[in-house]
């Protein structure tokens, strides 16, 4: 089991401020039951002083999620909203005497809920950049802003860290490319701002992604072989379409579906739907489609799932 600090254990076994806060003046909710954790943070603010006078939480999640939520309420009570907004997830982790790296997302959840609750109190629409398209990881409901904040606040430079702090990429892995882009872009901006050494910055494809839950780049059957030249592009697309069509009934019977988005050299972009609900199957599906297409085309292909809604 995890090595939790004494403080984490204490805040889990004897959580402070658990429960519902009647007539809360601001409520922040993040996460979802499907993701494995969710937090509802309720705050009461004194309009005169702008201070948080009371805070309570309800959390669905593991020991460190509950401890982080409880710690958060302890940290913010008595603070002004501006002071509270200056708190980062690292402050929550520090307050608890540290969290196992794989559990840092619990502190990020608290941080996000706090921002959300304050925005709710101020009557702001939280996340002006949060449109449909900005949701990067469907499995864990993670949007671009959250990934960016986690990267900046914690100086993250690897995909594994991003998974630990946000959970993004931790399940079906279809969001890996999108998250890689954000990590690269954010790191580059941090280098520019002098917050990060250029040598540390993440660059897509520069280093192998390590870690237990390695976010899977779709495996390439054989990288070096050139795309087929025998068939015309149109013939290839037709064949790919026919193959995918043949595969759809099987996917649909599992509650999923798949459609062809684009074909570019040996890359086949497909959109999987419904499949994220059953993430392990999604990666199996992608591999299955890939080997079937490779077999039929007689050349290696790389099947790249693109998130729906794009």
């Amino acid at each position: 089991m995890w090595e939790y600090s004494e403080k984490v254990k204490d805040y889990f076994f004897n959580p402070k401020n658990a429960g519902v806060l009647e007539d809360a003046s601001g409520v922040g909710e993040v996460g979802a039951i499907a993701c494995g954790d969710a937090l509802k943070l309720m705050i009461k603010v004194d309009p005169e002083t702008d201070r948080i006078t009371e805070a309570k939480f309800q959390t669905f999640g593991c020991g460190s999620a509950i401890a982080s939520s409880s710690a958060l309420t302890e940290i913010i009570i008595g603070k002004t909203l501006d002071e509270a907004l200056a708190i980062t997830n690292q402050d929550i982790a520090d307050f608890l005497g540290g969290l196992p790296p794989e559990k840092m997302h619990c502190s990020v959840m608290g941080y996000e809920a706090l921002r959300s609750a304050i925005a709710n109190y101020r009557g702001e629409v939280w996340e002006d950049d949060h449109e449909e398209g900005a949701l990067l990881c469907k499995c864990f409901g993670v949007d671009e802003g959250m990934v960016e904040r986690a990267i900046r606040n914690n100086v993250l430079t690897t995909m594994e860290q991003v998974a630990h702090f946000t959970k993004a990429t931790g399940s079906c892995g279809t969001c890996v490319e999108g998250i890689e882009e954000v990590l690269e872009r954010t790191n580059a901006a941090m280098v520019e701002a002098g917050e990060l050494a250029a040598s540390q910055a993440f660059v897509v494809g520069a280093a192998p992604v390590v870690g237990r839950k390695t976010p899977r780049n779709s495996p390439v059957v054989a990288l070096t072989s050139p795309p087929a030249t025998k068939m015309t592009t149109l013939q290839r697309i037709k064949l790919i379409e026919a193959e995918l069509e043949a595969l759809r009934p099987a996917l649909q019977s599992d509650g999923g579906d798949c459609e062809l988005v684009d074909v570019e050299d040996n890359k086949v972009m497909v959109r999987l739907t419904g499949a994220c609900v059953n993430c392990q199957l999604a990666s199996v599906t992608v591999q299955g489609i890939q080997s079937r297409l490779a077999e039929r085309l007689g050349t290696p292909v790389r099947v790249i799932p693109v998130p729906s809604g794009h």
Partner: peptide, 25 residues
Amino acid sequence: AILLLLNKAGIAASSGSACTSGSLE
């Protein structure tokens, strides 16, 4: 969370839960 409380009560069981395995699913 259930397992931690069970463990505190001196009972060892397990779960397929994401959080105990280090996996996120």
